[in-house]
Simulated scan of single mutants.
Amino acid sequence: MLGFDFKEIATIGMVLFAVIDIVGTIPIVVDLRQKYGHIESEKASLAAGIIMITFLFVGEELLNLIGIDVHSFAVAGSFVLFFLAIEMILGIRLYKEEEASSASIVPLAFPLIAGAGTMTTLLSLKSQFQTINIVIAIIFNIILVFIVLKSSAKIEKMLGKNGLGVIRKTFGVVLLAIAVKLFAANVKGLFH
């Protein structure tokens, strides 16, 4: 039925959940809420969803326009994911975000939720999975993002600093394994 596959949706969903790392960004969300008072969860979630789905459909054409093939982008993406995973596991910051001026679209929807890692992952996933399954996984993740943003204060109190750290490191290891798999699956395509 149109390539609809629960196993694929679950796999893609887990990959996107690890890349988006909404639980790991709770400390940033809390900081933004303290700076700007209110976080527009609906606006941020909707904007991130639109950015991700749009990029899923026009990202490849955009790459073709500038002369980059999907395998090259996927290999580059595996490096981005690798470094994101290293950040999560070791608790270091390699990528420095610009200072925010408002908390709804920038930096929450982009680049925190739908950032470079997410975009790269989407195109890499597109080379391996059915588009319909990716779209469904994006929608599930956006719903999760919305729920987490809405209840970020409760989650922070419930998990505490140590709980958030454990979750972040666990998803870092998952992301590292995904980066290695992505690299292995696409590096052969560079030489054909």
Results as ranks from 00 to 15, higher is better:
146 F>R: 09
170 T>S: 11
142 I>D: 04
129 F>Q: 05
141 N>L: 14
161 K>W: 00
80 V>L: 06
150 K>L: 13
80 V>I: 14
86 I>L: 13
78 S>E: 01
120 T>V: 08
150 K>W: 02
118 T>C: 12
142 I>C: 06
152 S>V: 15
164 L>V: 13
114 A>T: 03
165 G>Y: 00
178 I>G: 09
133 N>Y: 00
150 K>C: 09
134 I>M: 00
123 L>G: 10
129 F>L: 08
171 F>C: 05
158 M>D: 02
116 A>L: 15
149 L>M: 15
138 I>H: 06
110 F>H: 10
170 T>H: 03
159 L>Q: 02
89 I>Q: 03
103 A>T: 04
150 K>T: 04
154 K>L: 14
159 L>M: 15
158 M>V: 11
90 L>T: 15
116 A>S: 13
120 T>S: 12
113 I>D: 03
139 I>D: 03
110 F>Q: 10
113 I>T: 10
174 V>L: 14
165 G>N: 07
159 L>I: 14
99 E>Q: 05
123 L>Y: 01
141 N>K: 08
176 L>E: 00
124 S>M: 12
126 K>M: 14
99 E>I: 09
120 T>H: 00
106 V>Y: 11
175 L>G: 05
142 I>Q: 06
170 T>E: 05
147 I>W: 00
95 Y>G: 07
179 A>G: 03
94 L>W: 00
86 I>T: 07
143 I>Y: 03
154 K>Q: 03
121 T>R: 04
169 K>S: 12
133 N>E: 03
86 I>S: 07
142 I>P: 13
168 R>Q: 04
105 I>N: 07
131 T>F: 05
142 I>V: 13
178 I>A: 12
167 I>H: 01
162 N>P: 15
84 L>K: 10
103 A>V: 09
92 I>C: 14
124 S>E: 10
157 K>M: 07
121 T>V: 09
118 T>S: 12
158 M>I: 09
132 I>Q: 01
103 A>G: 13
85 A>R: 02
113 I>P: 15
97 E>N: 06
86 I>D: 01
